[in-house]
Protein backbone atom coordinates (compact mmCIF):
# COMPACT_ATOMS: atom_id res chain seq x y z
CA UNK A 1 0.00 0.00 0.00
CA UNK A 2 2.79 2.43 0.88
CA UNK A 3 5.19 1.58 -1.94
CA UNK A 4 8.75 2.86 -2.01
CA UNK A 5 9.34 4.76 -5.24
CA UNK A 6 12.92 5.86 -4.62
CA UNK A 7 15.72 5.20 -2.16
CA UNK A 8 18.93 7.15 -2.44
CA UNK A 9 22.04 7.67 -0.33
CA UNK A 10 22.69 11.38 0.16
CA UNK A 11 25.63 11.15 2.54
CA UNK A 12 27.15 8.51 4.82
CA UNK A 13 24.28 6.99 6.89
CA UNK A 14 21.90 9.52 5.40
CA UNK A 15 19.19 8.38 2.99
CA UNK A 16 16.31 9.82 1.03
CA UNK A 17 13.14 7.79 0.59
CA UNK A 18 10.17 8.56 -1.62
CA UNK A 19 6.90 6.86 -0.75
CA UNK A 20 3.69 6.62 -2.78
CA UNK A 21 1.07 8.30 -0.55
CA UNK A 22 -1.44 10.31 -2.60
CA UNK A 23 -3.80 11.12 0.28
CA UNK A 24 -0.99 12.58 2.39
CA UNK A 25 0.39 14.56 -0.56
CA UNK A 26 -2.99 16.22 -0.99
CA UNK A 27 -2.90 17.51 2.58
CA UNK A 28 0.79 18.12 3.28
CA UNK A 29 2.06 21.46 4.54
CA UNK A 30 5.52 22.69 5.46
CA UNK A 31 6.45 21.79 9.02
CA UNK A 32 4.30 18.68 9.28
CA UNK A 33 5.48 15.13 9.86
CA UNK A 34 4.43 11.55 9.21
CA UNK A 35 4.83 8.39 11.28
CA UNK A 36 5.78 5.17 9.56
CA UNK A 37 6.35 1.55 10.49
CA UNK A 38 8.63 -0.66 8.48
CA UNK A 39 7.11 -3.99 9.53
CA UNK A 40 4.81 -5.69 12.05
CA UNK A 41 7.47 -5.64 14.78
CA UNK A 42 8.52 -2.09 13.96
CA UNK A 43 8.51 1.09 16.00
CA UNK A 44 6.45 4.07 14.97
CA UNK A 45 9.06 6.39 13.44
CA UNK A 46 8.23 10.10 13.24
CA UNK A 47 9.87 11.95 10.32
CA UNK A 48 9.26 15.52 9.21
CA UNK A 49 8.39 15.93 5.52
CA UNK A 50 11.34 16.95 3.37
CA UNK A 51 9.26 17.29 0.21
CA UNK A 52 6.16 16.03 -1.58
CA UNK A 53 5.39 15.78 -5.29
CA UNK A 54 1.74 16.15 -6.33
CA UNK A 55 2.56 15.01 -9.90
CA UNK A 56 4.03 11.73 -8.65
CA UNK A 57 1.82 11.39 -5.55
CA UNK A 58 4.89 10.83 -3.41
CA UNK A 59 6.23 12.16 -0.15
CA UNK A 60 9.96 12.51 0.45
CA UNK A 61 11.66 11.82 3.78
CA UNK A 62 15.31 12.10 4.66
CA UNK A 63 16.64 10.15 7.61
CA UNK A 64 19.81 9.15 9.36
CA UNK A 65 20.50 5.47 9.97
CA UNK A 66 21.14 5.63 13.70
CA UNK A 67 19.14 2.79 15.27
CA UNK A 68 17.36 -0.41 14.40
CA UNK A 69 14.28 1.28 13.02
CA UNK A 70 16.08 3.65 10.67
CA UNK A 71 18.62 1.00 9.64
CA UNK A 72 15.74 -1.33 8.76
CA UNK A 73 14.11 1.48 6.82
CA UNK A 74 17.33 2.17 4.93
CA UNK A 75 17.71 -1.50 4.04
CA UNK A 76 14.49 -1.53 2.01
CA UNK A 77 14.47 -1.40 -1.77
CA UNK A 78 12.45 0.39 -4.39
CA UNK A 79 9.03 -1.27 -4.96
CA UNK A 80 8.97 -2.78 -1.47
CA UNK A 81 6.15 -1.60 0.76
CA UNK A 82 6.05 -0.07 4.20
CA UNK A 83 3.69 -1.52 6.75
CA UNK A 84 2.15 1.82 7.76
CA UNK A 85 2.38 5.52 6.99
CA UNK A 86 0.12 7.98 8.78
CA UNK A 87 -0.02 11.72 8.32
CA UNK A 88 0.22 14.55 7.87
CA UNK A 89 0.65 15.10 11.61
CA UNK A 90 1.36 18.20 13.67
CA UNK A 91 0.62 21.84 13.00
CA UNK A 92 1.89 23.38 9.77
CA UNK A 93 4.48 26.16 9.88
CA UNK A 94 2.93 29.59 10.29
CA UNK A 95 4.04 30.84 6.89
CA UNK A 96 3.74 34.56 6.10
CA UNK A 97 5.87 37.41 4.89
CA UNK A 98 7.99 38.39 7.88
CA UNK A 99 10.53 40.44 5.89
CA UNK A 100 13.82 38.65 6.34
CA UNK A 101 13.79 35.03 7.45
CA UNK A 102 16.89 33.12 8.43
CA UNK A 103 16.56 29.35 8.15
CA UNK A 104 19.13 27.37 10.09
CA UNK A 105 19.51 23.65 9.38
CA UNK A 106 21.94 21.30 11.07
CA UNK A 107 22.82 17.82 9.78
CA UNK A 108 19.79 15.82 8.73
CA UNK A 109 17.71 18.74 10.09
CA UNK A 110 18.37 20.55 6.82
CA UNK A 111 15.80 18.22 5.22
CA UNK A 112 12.69 19.55 6.98
CA UNK A 113 14.01 23.09 6.39
CA UNK A 114 13.56 22.62 2.65
CA UNK A 115 9.74 22.90 2.41
CA UNK A 116 9.71 25.68 5.01
CA UNK A 117 12.29 27.59 2.98
CA UNK A 118 10.24 27.14 -0.20
CA UNK A 119 7.08 28.27 1.55
CA UNK A 120 8.68 31.42 2.91
CA UNK A 121 10.20 32.23 -0.45
CA UNK A 122 6.72 32.09 -1.99
CA UNK A 123 5.47 34.75 0.43
CA UNK A 124 8.04 37.18 -0.91
CA UNK A 125 10.17 37.07 2.23
CA UNK A 126 13.91 37.48 1.86
CA UNK A 127 15.24 34.05 2.79
CA UNK A 128 18.76 33.48 4.06
CA UNK A 129 19.86 30.02 5.05
CA UNK A 130 22.65 28.75 7.21
CA UNK A 131 23.30 25.04 6.80
CA UNK A 132 25.90 23.01 8.59
CA UNK A 133 27.17 19.53 9.29
CA UNK A 134 30.08 17.82 11.02
CA UNK A 135 31.99 17.74 7.74
CA UNK A 136 31.59 18.37 4.02
CA UNK A 137 30.60 14.77 3.25
CA UNK A 138 27.67 14.95 5.65
CA UNK A 139 26.35 18.23 4.30
CA UNK A 140 23.12 17.60 2.39
CA UNK A 141 20.80 19.62 0.13
CA UNK A 142 23.22 22.48 -0.52
CA UNK A 143 22.25 22.68 -4.21
CA UNK A 144 18.52 22.64 -3.44
CA UNK A 145 18.90 25.40 -0.85
CA UNK A 146 20.98 27.51 -3.25
CA UNK A 147 18.17 27.27 -5.82
CA UNK A 148 15.68 28.83 -3.41
CA UNK A 149 17.51 31.11 -1.01
CA UNK A 150 18.74 34.67 -1.47
CA UNK A 151 21.88 33.73 0.43
CA UNK A 152 23.29 30.42 1.64
CA UNK A 153 25.92 30.25 4.37
CA UNK A 154 27.71 27.04 5.27
CA UNK A 155 29.56 25.80 8.32
CA UNK A 156 31.25 22.52 9.14
CA UNK A 157 32.63 21.45 12.51
CA UNK A 158 35.99 20.54 10.98
CA UNK A 159 36.17 23.37 8.46
CA UNK A 160 36.16 21.03 5.45
CA UNK A 161 33.61 23.38 3.88
CA UNK A 162 32.57 26.93 4.64
CA UNK A 163 33.01 28.46 8.06
CA UNK A 164 34.85 26.24 10.55
CA UNK A 165 32.55 25.92 13.52
CA UNK A 166 28.84 25.82 14.19
CA UNK A 167 25.80 27.26 12.44
CA UNK A 168 25.21 29.36 15.56
CA UNK A 169 28.61 31.01 15.03
CA UNK A 170 27.59 31.96 11.49
CA UNK A 171 24.29 33.35 12.73
CA UNK A 172 26.18 35.40 15.30
CA UNK A 173 28.45 36.78 12.57
CA UNK A 174 25.44 37.79 10.44
CA UNK A 175 23.86 39.54 13.42
CA UNK A 176 27.13 41.35 14.18
CA UNK A 177 27.43 42.40 10.54
CA UNK A 178 24.16 44.19 10.99
CA UNK A 179 21.78 41.92 9.07
CA UNK A 180 18.27 42.90 9.94
CA UNK A 181 16.59 39.61 10.80
CA UNK A 182 12.86 39.39 11.51
CA UNK A 183 12.61 35.72 12.35
CA UNK A 184 14.86 32.67 12.67
CA UNK A 185 13.74 29.08 12.01
CA UNK A 186 16.10 26.41 13.30
CA UNK A 187 15.92 22.66 12.86
CA UNK A 188 18.60 20.19 13.84
CA UNK A 189 20.02 18.41 16.86
CA UNK A 190 18.64 19.77 20.14
CA UNK A 191 22.03 21.12 21.23
CA UNK A 192 22.20 23.09 17.99
CA UNK A 193 18.70 24.48 18.43
CA UNK A 194 19.57 25.44 22.00
CA UNK A 195 22.67 27.28 20.75
CA UNK A 196 20.60 29.14 18.16
CA UNK A 197 18.06 30.12 20.83
CA UNK A 198 20.86 31.50 23.00
CA UNK A 199 22.35 33.37 20.03
CA UNK A 200 19.14 35.22 19.21
CA UNK A 201 17.84 35.71 22.76
CA UNK A 202 19.96 38.79 23.62
CA UNK A 203 18.92 40.40 20.31
CA UNK A 204 15.25 39.60 20.87
CA UNK A 205 14.93 38.03 17.45
CA UNK A 206 11.84 35.82 17.23
CA UNK A 207 13.07 32.23 16.90
CA UNK A 208 11.11 29.09 16.11
CA UNK A 209 12.39 25.52 16.47
CA UNK A 210 10.90 22.21 15.33
CA UNK A 211 11.32 19.69 18.15
CA UNK A 212 11.89 15.97 17.76
CA UNK A 213 11.33 14.32 21.15
CA UNK A 214 10.61 10.61 21.53
CA UNK A 215 7.08 9.92 20.30
CA UNK A 216 4.94 6.81 20.24
CA UNK A 217 1.50 7.44 18.78
CA UNK A 218 2.19 11.00 17.55
CA UNK A 219 -1.44 12.06 17.83
CA UNK A 220 -1.79 13.27 21.39
CA UNK A 221 -2.26 10.09 23.34
CA UNK A 222 0.92 8.96 25.03
CA UNK A 223 2.54 12.13 26.34
CA UNK A 224 6.04 10.73 25.66
CA UNK A 225 6.77 13.85 23.58
CA UNK A 226 5.91 16.24 26.40
CA UNK A 227 8.16 19.27 26.49
CA UNK A 228 8.27 22.23 28.81
CA UNK A 229 7.50 25.44 26.90
CA UNK A 230 7.24 28.61 28.94
CA UNK A 231 6.94 26.43 32.04
CA UNK A 232 3.89 24.63 30.66
CA UNK A 233 3.67 20.99 29.54
CA UNK A 234 3.11 20.81 25.78
CA UNK A 235 2.86 17.79 23.52
CA UNK A 236 5.13 18.20 20.50
CA UNK A 237 2.83 16.02 18.37
CA UNK A 238 -0.41 18.00 18.69
CA UNK A 239 0.71 21.34 20.14
CA UNK A 240 3.84 21.49 17.95
CA UNK A 241 6.20 20.38 16.58
CA UNK A 242 7.21 24.07 16.23
CA UNK A 243 7.62 26.21 19.34
CA UNK A 244 9.09 29.54 20.42
CA UNK A 245 12.74 28.61 20.94
CA UNK A 246 13.18 31.10 23.78
CA UNK A 247 10.50 29.32 25.83
CA UNK A 248 11.70 25.74 25.35
CA UNK A 249 13.47 23.88 28.18
CA UNK A 250 16.16 22.27 26.02
CA UNK A 251 18.02 20.63 28.90
CA UNK A 252 14.93 18.66 29.79
CA UNK A 253 14.28 17.79 26.14
CA UNK A 254 17.83 16.48 25.68
CA UNK A 255 17.59 14.30 28.80
CA UNK A 256 14.26 12.87 27.68
CA UNK A 257 15.64 12.12 24.20
CA UNK A 258 18.35 9.99 25.81
CA UNK A 259 15.97 8.00 28.02
CA UNK A 260 16.16 4.77 26.06
CA UNK A 261 19.79 4.80 24.87
CA UNK A 262 20.55 1.46 26.58
CA UNK A 263 17.53 -0.22 25.00
CA UNK A 264 18.41 1.26 21.61
CA UNK A 265 21.81 -0.45 21.83
CA UNK A 266 20.20 -3.73 22.90
CA UNK A 267 17.79 -3.57 19.98
CA UNK A 268 20.58 -2.93 17.51
CA UNK A 269 22.72 -5.80 18.82
CA UNK A 270 19.71 -8.11 18.73
CA UNK A 271 18.90 -7.16 15.16
CA UNK A 272 22.47 -7.59 13.98
CA UNK A 273 22.62 -11.00 15.65
CA UNK A 274 19.33 -12.11 14.05
CA UNK A 275 20.44 -10.92 10.66
CA UNK A 276 23.82 -12.63 11.03
CA UNK A 277 22.23 -16.02 11.73
Amino acid sequence: MYRIVAMQTLAPQTKLIEIYAPEIVAKAHAGQFVILRVDEEGERIPLTLADWKPEANTITLIFQEVGVSTIKLGSLNVNEELCDVVGPLGNPTDVRNYGTVVIVGGGVGIAPCLPITKAFKKTGSRVISIIGARNEKLLILEREMRCICDEVHISTDDGSKGHKGFVSDVLNILIKKGYSIDIVYAIGPSVMMRAIAETTRPHKIKTVVSLNPIMVDGMGMCGACRVSVGGKVKFACVDGPEFDAHQVDFDQLIKRQRAFLAEERTALEHWEKCRGN
Binding site: E43, G223, A224, E263
Partner: peptide
Protein backbone atom coordinates in the same frame (compact mmCIF):
# COMPACT_ATOMS: atom_id res chain seq x y z
CA UNK B 1 1.56 8.46 31.51
CA UNK B 2 -0.56 5.31 31.85
CA UNK B 3 -1.36 5.74 28.18
CA UNK B 4 2.28 5.74 27.12
CA UNK B 5 2.97 2.73 29.33
CA UNK B 6 -0.03 0.78 28.01
CA UNK B 7 0.45 1.83 24.36
CA UNK B 8 4.04 0.60 24.49
CA UNK B 9 2.99 -2.69 26.05
CA UNK B 10 -0.30 -3.43 24.28
CA UNK B 11 -0.10 -1.74 20.90
CA UNK B 12 3.65 -1.89 20.30
CA UNK B 13 4.15 -5.21 22.15
CA UNK B 14 7.19 -4.00 24.01
CA UNK B 15 6.80 -6.94 26.41
CA UNK B 16 8.41 -8.87 23.56
CA UNK B 17 11.32 -6.40 23.16
CA UNK B 18 13.78 -6.80 21.44
CA UNK B 19 11.86 -9.13 19.10
CA UNK B 20 9.56 -6.13 18.76
CA UNK B 21 11.47 -2.89 18.33
CA UNK B 22 9.67 -0.59 20.79
CA UNK B 23 11.37 -0.64 24.20
CA UNK B 24 10.04 -0.22 27.73
CA UNK B 25 11.97 -0.10 30.98
Amino acid sequence: SANEFLIRVNLMKSYAFPDYDTPIR
